[in-house]
Amino acid sequence: MFRYLIRRILWAILLFIIITFVTFVIFFMGPNDPARAQCGGDQARPACLKLVTEHYGLNKPLYVQYWRFFDRLVVHQNLGYSYANGSSVNQTIAKAAPVTASLVFGGAVIWMMIALSLGVYSALRPRSLLDRTAMVFVLIGISAHPVWIGLIFEYVFGVKLGWTPIANYANFFGAPAGSGLPGGPWQWFYHMILPWFTFALLFAALYVRMVRANVMETLNEDFVRTARAKGAPERRILVSHVLRNALLPVVTMLGMDIGVALGGAVFTETVYQLPGLGQNLVVGIQANDFATVQGVVVFATVAILLFNLIVDVLYAWIDPRIRLA
């Protein structure tokens, strides 16, 4: 287990270097001029461009810039300052990460709730009306784009019915001082309902099928027959014997998909105007703000690597066959 951890961490470091370098190269290959963002965009005047370029060292060779970035990150844990607005990228991410975490983890809870209830129920009653309805849900969830779903939700629940806010984020720990914005746990929850469901739909759909298949497969396992032969009631069989085994592969998938989901968060954040990592990424790209883009990429990479590691350890913990191997 220890050797395994060491190997995983070394891999993660290598992967991290590759990803950040590739981002660097991609960004500098394009005809981007980060200085332009700070000099008035379309009509930047030469004097300003020159000034800003030198200020950020944008005229240095790529490897020098990469080294500067890497050195600053590793030695000072500093992701630098936005080319577009001069703000500390560390701070930007510190503010954005909780928003994205709220979305992704809250969304994951909802998607697992939907996937488990629908998946298990339709596995227990295959071909029933509910099973077929779940299939329709799956099709919609997989085919519909989150932005489209988001706009529909906003319009129906926010504008027409007025049940929820249309968009925007409310801070869990209270509104920013002096802003007059909503804040606190309830407002946070209230503002996140639509984003959560929008975000969860695609994965809920995928997971309904997966949970259904796994549960059906596990129901046919010999040890389930053993449990029945012992005289265990169906409910106990489902909870104690079927689910734990059926959900093992789901946990692995969940670990991998959280990373993928982070990408999906970009759309949900955009449509609901949540100031999370995804939105900062999009804005950063539009503004040629490489420092912010790289900051988000670095953070997301580390978060995903870390998360996968946690899931691996968790998986070993719930599956004794791996733990003791």
């Binding site: 988001g150 249309i166 804005v283």
Partner: peptide, 22 residues
């Protein structure tokens, strides 16, 4: 009393919010 500026809003969402007077 003041003005709040929300940046990076989504075009369609923002329109909905103004239509709903939010």
């Amino acid at each position: 009393q003041g003005l709040d500026v929300f940046w990076n809003q989504n075009e369609a969402t923002l329109y909905n919010q103004v239509a709903a007077n939010q």
